[in-house]
Design a protein around this nucleic acid. Structure first.
Lengths: 288, 288
DNA sequence: CGATAAATGGAATAAAAATTCCATATTTCC
DNA sequence: GGAAATATGGAATTTTTATTCCATTTATCG
């Protein structure tokens, strides 16, 4: 966790001066930041290749920040690593230490780590319990639908928001039932046979979400439900239910497994539809 | 995902054959075991000195275990470190290799598992690179603010949506800059000293988000930025920047690490404010 | 638009580091 | 105890890697 001061100091200075660096030196700066843990192992040519510059540019970069050359700057990364070469302990060891210590008042770092650890466990379980047949069935239901409706409320709305955004990369007609102006009913009213609804809800279930799934089913649309159990009220109205058992810590339930599963669902659908993604590609300044 | 790697295999063979090694090679064996985490950084002369042998003995040791020389054996230590230190990069490289090597159609299950695995790696990195000082600083900035503004667009909007929902559990005055009716500017216009802005954006950055962070800073509000790098445009206007390096698979970037970090941030704030959560508790049918 | 400064590409050179090969020492075996 | 095999020390050589220095290109400024 606590990284070496010298590397932090260098990276801070690099960040401070970034705007005023020539283009190539900016590229080297980005490369160093992305690969700071392995700079100590790389040849000047590796850094140059990775940054799309000539090795002499890497030497100039180092000299600009006060080192005699790449070797001296690299030695600093290497020394920093040596200082902390003792293993920091496995995940289990660290979590046991936190539990054993358990100070009466947790500080922010401990809270954050516990929360993140709980989320990691959640993802581990997501993999273990992954139901291939249901997942494939969900993709099968989404693929032929021209219109896809999405509904979720409050905590889960973030997921619905993302799915709507992601589906915007396809040519599906996407209807996000966001309840603007209290118009959940009006927004779902047009659903019908041949359409699909993605409904996301967890206990205590959102009335709006339940209403939408019931109506969708009545109208012979396909319902893909995302929830924590087959035993909840969503299951009865769903053609397929994808189960997510979200982790929780400090009484707050995570969303990581749900967003992960939904992103995977979208990626699988995109793959099926042969969508060519433009995320990560710089398309002017449209994405964020 | 942790595999018995080449280093473990070598060390096991060395252990098996230890008794039958000449005295000097035994000394090298001990040295390697004691310093396995830093062999990748050492010159053959360093290993020789540390083992009280001549460098040529180290070359002979390596050759005895099937390597052409010290360099080849050392490269194996180095590669093992790279797998651990940059799992995301290595994983992304691996998944690209899987895609490249399998021109046949991937099925949904493979896509889902790969995506989830990438997200797990992302969370592992979130823990490894967790910056306590920055995280605490973010909580310190949010705690005293009466008004908290949140801005993110498109893909990242899901995160903003969740934060707004979560903050609804506190008595903060929450302003979600959702751009309804094209009114980003109007929604942020009231921000001022003593307020806080949470801005979430990744390359390519949202103009709306950048505008809001600039204005917030001009108005002397505190800006908590969530982005992937100190070198991006958000950093210049942020009081504190929380870094998230999201995994991506099949050209789609995940959101799991970002949502996880933001949830941890909220939980830490809630703890600081001594908020008593009602999530997970059945309070009629309000939550979902 | 031209002069000047800065940035860049890259071959030549320098330095560092690994390996080879051989003389000598030590160990093993008959 | 001596011959043969193996181990060891180390200088010379080779290979690898970093740095220097300069020509060319690009950017900046008046």
């Amino acid at each position: 966790m606590a990284v070496s001061n010298a590397v932090d100091q260098l990276m801070q200075r690099v960040a401070d001066e970034f705007e005023s660096l020539p283009r190539q030196l900016q590229g080297i700066a980005r490369y160093l930041e992305q690969h700071r843990s392995s700079i100590m192992l790389q040849k000047v040519n590796d850094v140059a290749s990775g940054s799309n510059v000539h090795p002499s540019a890497v030497v100039r970069f180092a000299q600009r920040f006060g080192y005699t050359g790449f070797s001296e700057m690299q030695a600093m990364f290497r020394d920093a690593y040596r200082e902390r070469a003792e293993p920091s302990g496995s995940y289990q060891h660290r979590i046991r230490r936190v539990i054993a210590e358990r100070p009466e008042k947790l500080d922010e770092t401990q809270i954050a780590r516990s929360f993140i650890d709980a989320c990691r466990v959640g993802l581990d379980e997501l993999v273990e319990r992954f139901d291939s047949a249901r997942f494939r069935a969900a993709v099968d239901l989404l693929e032929p639908a021209e219109h896809i409706y999405i509904v979720a409320v409050r905590r889960s709305f973030a997921i619905a928001s993302y799915i709507a955004y992601a589906l915007g990369h396809t040519t599906k007609r996407v209807h996000l039932v966001d309840g603007l102006g209290g118009m959940h009913r009006e927004q779902i009213h047009s659903i019908g046979k041949g359409d699909a609804l993605i409904a996301i809800s967890f206990p205590p279930y959102g009335k709006e979400t339940l209403f939408c799934t019931r109506l969708a089913r009545q109208r012979k649309a396909k319902v893909i439900a995302i929830s924590e159990s087959d035993l909840g009220p969503l299951a009865a109205h769903a053609n397929v239910l994808l189960k997510v058992d979200e982790a929780s810590a400090f009484a707050f339930r995570a969303l990581t497994s749900t967003i992960c599963l939904c992103q995977a669902l979208f990626v699988a659908l995109a793959y099926r539809l042969e969508v060519k993604p433009n995320e990560g590609a710089h398309t002017g300044d449209y994405d964020a």
